[in-house]
């Protein structure tokens, strides 16, 4: 499956290895993974999402990346639910003929997942809970594409 939205964790090494193995069509594989940071006494992160729209929105973003950079393949895994500092939140992998396209497509996927995939992060700290506010620079990052 090229798009997976799931509560459970995943094995980054196994996913990257499976994605990269057996390819003769792509000379470049790029992977990016996002991890929960322990900023400011964070105890736990909870990610809410919009079942149905999440999968279709990520699918559309993935399709655009594949078409635009002529990717051999692209994988997006994004978790929802509760996770602690140090846990993996998500990963993207891209396979292209050359590394420039693989890197660019991975950055495009990340920029769009940040601001256009329906996820909302809530942080739990010792002094209370709070929704993570979207950053102006994340929205601005879309302009370069």
């Amino acid at each position: 499956m090229s798009v997976r939205v799931q509560a459970e964790s995943f094995d980054l090494g196994a996913e990257a290895s499976r994605f990269a193995s057996g390819r003769t069509d792509a000379g470049a594989i790029v992977t990016f993974s996002g991890v929960v940071r322990a900023d400011g006494g964070l105890i736990e992160m909870e990610i809410e999402h919009y079942p149905g729209m999440t999968e279709s929105a990520i699918g559309a973003i993935r399709e655009e990346a594949v078409a635009r950079w002529s990717l051999a393949d692209a994988l997006v895994i994004h978790r929802h639910g509760r996770m602690e500092p140090g846990e993996l939140i998500m990963m993207v992998a891209t396979a292209a003929r050359h590394r420039g396209d693989a890197f660019a497509a991975a950055e495009f996927l990340m920029d769009y997942l940040k601001s256009r995939a329906p996820f909302w992060k809530k942080e739990r700290r010792g002094d209370g809970d709070g929704w993570v506010a979207a950053k102006v620079e994340d929205e601005a990052a879309l302009q370069r594409w």
Binding site: G34, Y50, M90, M110, S115, A117, F119, W131
Partner: peptide, 10 residues
């Protein structure tokens, strides 16, 4: 129809 704050994925 769904209403929500700006998204914070990734």
């Amino acid at each position: 129809v769904a209403f929500f704050p700006p998204m914070t994925g990734g």
